[in-house]
Design a protein around this nucleic acid. Structure first.
Length: 818
DNA sequence: TTAGGGTTAG
């Protein structure tokens, strides 16, 4: 590809030159000049086309507009100066716009400051530069300067100024501008009217948007689109859709790509994820192809639904259409893979992506933390600065909450303190919420109270999330033993908050419920849950997770099924966390069948899902199924973690598979997973049960951690079963050292002596118990029947239906014997 | 030389 621009560039009319730039492979032009800005070709080209010929201002303007690299732009700037266009207002405005397009704010500001003559157009160009870059504070100050300068303001400044108001989120500013617009009689101007609709819509004031829309003497497609967008963005999605359909019946305002995109975006932003995707397909069926913005607005919907296959289709589409340099698109894709638990692909996309920004990094930080890789997340977080990416509040919050979720509370709190030191970045409701959760989990009341005052200082105490986290923190810290007392305190706190204008919402409720469940107050949590539903509060995905955990602790399958039905209605059951909670709940409530059904309904099961099912199998003694699932996981390339191995090892214990267990235990090394004491306990339990006591003892001695009582009990159990006096005695003595008050240990030792006929030792052990004032606690069991608890001890005859009970017992014994 | 649609954190 050669530039055939050696012909005089000024000879053809300016329009032809523009065509040259636009149709003559503009990408090629930019890539060449980008790769080799000083190449002779480009220099020749600029020489031939610009240096050797006189050029008029409109030709300059056209070249500046179609200029695709900053380098060329700067050369053009130099050239205008040489050609005596310095101080030419029109030319300098064009240069400002050029710098704006390349994001060179400083160059633009420098030029603007040096300009000897400024007119309304140059002021407007500079203002729109600030607005386009989202620098609304700067834009606001600049606009005030503009008003002080004695420039007569034209109508076209108002749309920009209105954007500043909505950008700053200050409706009052927009209102004042609305007044000025009326005073200056610009109110019937189409552009100004459209901008007013947009401003009111963005400030969430649909009423006034509607008023302006209704009063407009003429409306165009943009007016309709602005109003439709206002509806869609404020949650009136079906109204927006209605407008779209009305537009299609109109002559001169047919719905276009922007109309469709606004509606689709509205559905997506308001959580109507399925509908947003459906609408995209409908739009395509109507013959309108999506652009980058349309795709970017449905990607989050696809991500939230964890539709990995659809996400891959989008990935293909945007690759084919050359959209992979757009960070809205690529970030959206990364988030799809992250949420669909395909963190590998997410990371691959991320590392290949050259236009990474803070959002890309934040998404990956979250992805890392979700998978337990907090140190990798932290590494990326720290590296952002080196990558030239400024950390924003979301980066900090993602890291802090990542630590909280991974129980690294000290790290979370130290990050919170670092954040307070940081310039130009302030903690928000997310930050305080996570920090409060850290306090709740570490039961740090003092710190929690400090955060409470921080929240008050920042006016965030009644923020929905902070309020909920405060309730949760107080719930967990105030040592609430009695459920009633806790409930009273919470309701009291709630009441006080309500009096101060705080309305309990789903976050508050979730905070209360989580506080109770984490304190083991499951029954109270269930009562509160009923109360919450009675107050017409709809449980969200977090509520479902909390209640499921309460159900599993209470082994309450009926209530578990109810909440399962609710999660199916809300499509929460496809979520990997809820899916795993359902599997866990059914397993703990005794139904392995339901657990399996719930597991099979998870569309893209991840490690958490598999682990839940493995644990369920192990819990129910379905060892073969568990081991089979584990092998299948490995075949499918899943990397197991500590939990996986623990489940599968305990499955091996159930059926006495020593060799398989050894294989798995060694496999842990391959995956670079350090066995914990629980893994060792499994191995020792298994070896002891199968009589391989000396090997078990060797393993205990070689274990890198201090042995605890659970481990010694497992070993002792084996010694008793296999009558190994020597090792049994060691185990029992260690156990008595570790738990001097546990009667069971003495009894076991005594029984061991009895087996061996060591009556003197037996007598000494019993004497030791007597000396310490210990006696054997009778075995105790109880049954819950509705609100009654029936307690039974061995040989107990105190129950009012003792006769019935013993008769039934005799009957059962007879049955079993026969 | 002026107006409308897009990503991430609990």
């Amino acid at each position: 590809m050669h530039f055939q621009l050696s012909e005089p560039i000024t000879n053809p009319p300016p329009l032809l030159i523009k065509q040259h730039f636009d149709s003559h492979r503009p990408q090629k032009l930019s890539s060449l000049s980008f790769e080799a800005p000083n190449s002779t070709k480009l220099t020749t080209y600029t020489h031939l086309s610009l240096f050797d010929r006189p050029i008029n201002s409109s030709t300059y303007a056209l070249i500046l507009e179609s200029c695709r690299t900053l380098n060329l732009g700067k050369q053009l700037h130099a050239h205008t100066l040489k050609s005596g266009f310095g101080g030419h207002e029109f030319m300098e405005t064009k240069l400002l716009q050029m710098y704006g397009r390349f994001g060179c704010l400083e160059d633009a500001e420098l030029l603007f400051d040096k300009m000897s003559l400024r007119n309304l157009y140059s002021w407007t160009a500079m203002l729109s530069l600030y607005v386009d870059h989202g620098l609304f504070e700067e834009a606001f100050l600049f606009f005030q300067e503009l008003q002080i300068e004695d420039v007569s303001v034209e109508f076209f400044v108002f749309p920009l100024a209105l954007k500043v108001s909505s950008g700053l989120g200050i409706e009052e500013l927009g209102r004042q501008l609305h007044g000025t617009v009326i005073k200056n009689q610009f109110v019937s101007n189409l552009y100004v009217g459209n901008a007013l609709i947009d401003m009111y819509g963005k400030c969430g004031n649909l009423d006034d948007a509607k008023k302006v829309f209704g009063k407009m003497p003429e409306k165009d497609c943009v007016s309709w689109n602005s109003f439709l967008t206002a509806c869609a963005a404020n949650g009136m999605v079906y109204e927006a859709l209605d407008f779209l359909e009305r537009m299609s019946l109109m002559e001169n305002s047919k719905p276009n790509l922007v109309s469709w995109s606004a509606v689709i975006g509205g559905f997506s932003q308001n959580g109507y994820d399925e509908e947003a995707i459906e609408l995209l397909l409908r739009m395509q069926a109507e013959g309108i192809e999506p652009n980058e913005r349309t795709i970017a607005s449905v990607l989050p919907a696809c991500a939230r639904l964890q539709k990995l296959r659809l996400g891959k289709e989008f990935h293909g589409y945007v690759t084919r259409h050359g959209m992979m340099s757009n960070f809205y698109i690529v970030n959206g894709l990364i988030d799809i893979y992250r949420r669909s638990a395909d963190i590998k692909t997410a990371f691959k996309l991320f590392s290949k992506f050259s236009a990474k920004n803070a959002v890309s990094c934040n998404t990956i930080v979250v992805g890392y933390c979700e998978n337990g890789y907090t140190s990798e997340a932290r590494e990326l977080f720290d590296r952002m600065e080196l990558l030239g990416i400024r950390k924003d509040i979301i980066s900090w919050n993602s890291m802090i909450s990542g630590y909280v979720d991974n129980f690294q509370f000290d790290e979370a709190m130290s990050m919170f303190k670092d954040l307070l030191m940081e310039d130009g970045i302030k903690p928000n409701s997310f930050t305080l919420g996570s920090a409060l959760t850290a306090c709740a989990d570490t039961v740090s009341l003092r710190l929690g109270k400090e955060l409470h005052s921080q929240a008050i200082v920042r006016g965030l105490q009644y923020n929905t999330f902070v309020g909920g986290a405060l309730v949760e923190m107080y719930c967990r810290c105030q040592d609430i033993m009695a459920a009633q007392k806790a409930f009273n305190e919470v309701t009291h706190l709630l009441q006080k908050m309500c009096e101060d204008g705080f309305e309990p919402n789903i976050y508050t409720w979730n905070g209360i419920l989580a506080g109770h469940v984490q304190n083991g107050l499951h029954e109270t949590a269930m009562h509160l849950f009923s109360e919450m539903q009675a107050s017409n509060m709809w449980p969200d995905i977090y509520t479902v997770g909390i209640i499921l955990s309460a159900c599993s602790r209470l082994a309450s399958i009926d209530r578990g099924k109810q909440i399962h039905a609710h999660s199916i209605r809300c499509s929460y059951d496809a979520d990997v966390h809820i899916g795993a909670a359902l599997v866990d709940m059914y397993a703990k409530c005794g139904s392995i069948r339901h657990a399996l059904l719930a597991y099979e309904r998870i569309p893209n099961p991840n490690l958490i899902s598999h682990n839940a099912m493995l644990t369920a199998y192990a819990m129910h003694g379905h060892a073969e199924d568990g081991i089979a699932l584990f092998r299948k996981m490995l075949e499918n390339g899943f990397t197991p973690d500590q939990v996986t191995f623990l489940s599968v090892l305990s499955s091996c214990v159930h059926i006495g598979l020593v060799e398989t267990a050894r294989e798995f235990f060694n496999l842990m090394q391959y995956y670079d997973i350090k066995p914990t004491i629980k893994h060792y306990t499994c191995m020792i339990d298994l070896l002891s049960r199968t009589g391989q006591l000396s090997e078990a003892y060797e393993l205990i001695k070689n274990a890198p951690m201090k042995s605890d009582s659970v481990l010694w009990s497992a070993f002792l159990g084996g010694c008793v079963t296999h009558h190994n006096m020597e090792l049994g005695e060691i185990a029992a003595e260690r156990l008595i050292e570790l738990e001097p008050d546990n009667t069971g240990n003495y009894i076991t030792l005594a029984n061991l002596y009895a087996f061996d006929g060591r009556w003197a030792d037996l007598a000494r052990t019993r004497l030791k118990m007597k000396d310490r004032g210990m006696h054997k606690n009778p075995g105790c069991s109880w049954i819950e029947d509705r609100d009654d608890v029936h307690v039974f001890l061995a040989h107990d005859k105190s129950h009012k239906r003792t006769e019935d009970i013993y008769a039934t017992l005799d009957n059962l014994t007879l049955h079993m014997k026969s």
